[in-house]
Nucleic acid binder design. Structure first.
Lengths: 244, 244
DNA sequence: GGGAAATATGTACTTACGACACATTAATTT
DNA sequence: AAATTAATGTGTCGTAAGTACATATTTCCC
């Protein structure tokens, strides 16, 4: 009987027998961007017959010689050309029947990227951005993965300055507010919104103005460098004691 | 090239070749209890030479015919005799070198149990409860797992009524407060604490008193049934809009 | 130059948070 | 049985944050 993950010799022998370990492990990347006032994710059309016409997230099997986190970075790099992205593990999905071709356990990561970033290159033209709101069905259990990542994103956005990874370096407060509204699916009062952002003290006023907007331009801001967290093991940080 | 988790025939063939999939997957259970005014976890002494004298969490390899979640339930059932426990997935740890005997990716779950529960049976006398505060080093990367689960527990405890899984059915407000203090490692003001608990409206006043306490007994309460969440896929729930 | 459409800003009300002190009860000791 | 001890139980006030709400200003466009 196995005792913890303390694999004894007997158990190690099992590793060399396929029947005991025919579980594959993959990672799936839920890549969010913000475009045309909508929160979108990067999807690819499934090539399995079972899921014809449905889309799935980008994923791949984890290689024996790479860390789990590295696998998700690799996928991002290979598919988007971007190097320095916000990426966070969300949840691992492991029901027996989630993959029609066999037992595959997958770890989902979510990523936030600036869709206008210079380095972004979607080479594969089977890849498409889909507005989160419009997605009803997906291949595999990917709709569940999407919902789980969305819930996590909403939690994170309430507490941490991660949202800025979806925006270009310089942005206006209107853009920022519209992004919050797109993610949280609520309307926010402009004055209260600005008050709270001011209190957070996350932003630097660039003393520059928007350009090419059809009406009066707003001021541009950027995130203070100390709040830029790309990959994010969430800091354990002392609890703010609000009890419960 | 693999495309998502859409395994093509070519990729499925890889599944039948061990060299591509010699990654084992396990689950580890971080089982918390509350005893003698301390938050404790259930540990077992590692039987690997590399980790002699160190302790690890209970874990086991995931079987091909069980869900990932089921594997953690199985371990809990086998090791504690308990059936209906609070259990939640926390994080998956997948660095290459985390297990000295080979590539093992593990998904950590945390569990909250009432140490005085009638059904609790720790049969194996190699299993011991250790106060979280006293734990310095552990086998594998289990100290990291502990810290991650502790951080998650602290987050959860601030927002959701999960803490009651650590207490017996009936408890006093003092016990509840001491438990919050043990988990969050802070001192709480009794009056403010009671005020907030009252606002939450989680409790039923049983109109009973503590017994066998060395001084004035306090009133006993129990959690309202509608807040009892055993296994907890966290409800996605609409965001409370506090912006950011 | 006038109109349209956006930016920018402040106040009053309400609710939550945090610090803080004293009377009451029951068990224990004298 | 009276006094002591150690806990339970409760309320107020000042401060900070959250919410609702209206008007003046700037720039673009015609």
């Amino acid at each position: 009987m196995a005792k913890g993950t303390n694999l004894k010799t007997a158990e190690l022998e099992k590793i060399s027998h396929l029947e005991y370990f025919n579980i594959a492990i993959s990672v799936d990347c839920v890549i969010f961007c913000y475009h045309e006032k909508q929160l979108k994710v990067l999807l690819i059309k499934s090539d399995l017959e079972e899921f014809s016409g449905l889309y799935s997230f980008l994923g791949d099997l984890v290689r024996p010689d790479e860390d789990l986190d590295s696998a998700s970075y690799r996928i991002l790099r290979e598919r988007t050309g971007m190097e320095d992205v916000y990426l966070e593990q969300v949840h691992t999905f492991g029901t027996i029947d989630r993959h029609p071709s066999g037992r595959v356990i997958t770890t989902a990561y979510y990523s936030l990227i600036d869709v206008k970033h210079q380095k972004l290159r979607i080479t594969n033209n089977e890849l498409q951005w889909h507005a989160v709101q419009d997605i009803r069905k997906m291949a595999f259990d990917h709709k569940l993965i999407l919902d789980t990542c969305l819930a996590r994103l909403r939690e994170q956005v309430m507490e941490h300055p991660v949202i800025f990874n979806l925006l270009p370096e310089k942005f206006s407060l209107r853009e920022l507010q519209e992004l919050y509204e797109a993610i949280l699916q609520v309307d926010l009062d402009r004055r209260n919104f600005r008050k709270k952002i001011a209190i957070k003290d996350w932003l630097i006023d660039l003393n520059e103005m928007e350009e090419d907007v059809p009406h009066r331009p707003g001021k541009l801001y950027k995130l203070k460098p100390e709040f830029k967290r790309k990959a994010g093991r969430r800091k354990a940080g002392g609890p703010r004691v609000a009890i419960a």
